Computed example of a mutant assay.
Amino acid sequence: MKQYIKIGTRKSKLAMVQTEMVVNAIKKVNTDIEIELVPMTTIGDKVLDKPLESFGGKGAFISEFEDALLTGKIDMAVHSAKDMPISLPKGLSILAVSLREDPRDVLVTRKNCPLPQNGIVGTSSLRRQIQIEELYPVQTKNLRGNVGTRLLKLQNKEYDGIILAAAGLKRLNFQEDKEYDFMYLDEDSFIPAAGQGIIAIEGREEAALQAVLQSFNHMESMYNLETEREVLKLLNAGCSEPVGVYSNIDKDKIILRVIYKYKNKVIRVNGIAKIEERLLLAKKLVNDIINFE
C-alpha cells in the first residue's frame, strides 16, 4: 500500500535544496512512498528590515510549520537546525537529522578587497557580532535576507564584508564564486550556532513517520544537536542571546565549546566527556558560565 507524506519547506533556494536532499534520501530506501512538497512563507521571510529578536526570534521561521504539523496539513517540516527554538509544542519533536555539513562561519568580502579598519560587517547575529569584533576593528550592521540577497548587498558595497554559514554556501555551490574571497573561521575559536550545518526534520511523534526517517537519521549529528540544544535550554537562551555552542565527537568522547556574553563579560568554556554523559557535560559548562568570576 502506497504511503503519502506531505513535507513542509520554506520557499528560499537553500530551503528547497535542503528539502530535496531529504526527499531523495527517503525515496532511496522507501520506493513505495509518494511525497508532496508544501512550500510555505513564514513571518521571518516577510519581515526583512528588522533583527529577528525584535519580532519573534527563532520561532519566526518555524511557527507556521508547527501549526501545519499539528493540524495535519503537513506530516514533516525540514529546517536548518540552528533556526529551531528550544521548546517544541507537545506532540512534536525532531524526528531525524542529517549528517552535519561544514559547521563553520565564513567571512565573505569582495574579490581582492580585504576588510578595512573600521569596516562594516553585515550580520544580524549577536553571536557573530561579539566574535568578529574580537578579531577585527570593525563595525557590525544588521543584515537579513537569503544567501543570494546578502551577497548582492555585499557586491553593491552596502557592506565591506558579511558573515555567512559555510553549510549554506556549499549547498548552494557559492563557495567557489570568483567574485568573492572566502575566509573560513575556525569552529574551535569562532564558535558556531547550536546545530549549525545540520538539517533537522520536525514532525509528529508517530511511529510510521519515525520509521520512514530511520535510515536518514545520523546518530552522531543527533548527539551533537542534543548536546548543543541542552546548553541553550539550560541558559534559557533564545535568538536574542549572544551564545555559540559547538560539539564534536572523537571515538567515544564528545568535546563541547561554548561562548556566551553574560553580565557584560564574554565567557568561553569547554569540556570533554563520554558520549553517554553529554547532557551532564552541558550542565557542567553552563554552571561554569553562571559561576564565572
Rank of each mutant, 00 (worst) to 15 (best):
Ile249Pro: 13
Gly271Glu: 00
Ile275Gly: 00
Lys46Tyr: 07
Glu134Ala: 09
Leu209Thr: 07
Thr42Gly: 04
Leu48Met: 10
Gly195Val: 03
Leu154Ala: 09
Ser87Tyr: 14
Glu230Ile: 04
Glu101Cys: 07
Ser215Met: 07
Ile290Arg: 14
Ile74Pro: 06
Ser54Gln: 13
Leu232Thr: 02
Glu202Val: 14
Lys11Arg: 15
Thr19Ile: 06
Glu220Lys: 15
Gly148Ser: 14
Glu202Tyr: 01
Val38Trp: 03
Val212Asn: 06
Ile290Gln: 13
Val231Ile: 09
Met21Phe: 05
Asp186Ala: 07
Met1Glu: 04
Asp83Gln: 02
Ala165Met: 06
Ala193Arg: 11
Leu95Pro: 05
Phe292Ala: 11
Lys233Gln: 12
Leu225Met: 09
Pro39Gly: 00
Arg171Ala: 10
Val17Thr: 15
Lys27Asn: 14
Arg128Val: 13
Ile132Gly: 01
Asn287Ser: 14
Ala211Lys: 15
Ile7Gln: 06
Asn118Lys: 14
Ala25Cys: 06
Val22His: 05
Ile191Cys: 08
Asn156Pro: 07
Ala207Val: 11
Gln139Asn: 15
Glu205Tyr: 05
Asp75Glu: 05
Asn270Ala: 11
Pro192Trp: 10
Arg128Glu: 10
Gly168Met: 03
Ile267Cys: 01
Glu230Asn: 13
Glu34Thr: 13
Gly271Gln: 03
Pro137Arg: 00
Leu135Glu: 05
Ser125Val: 03
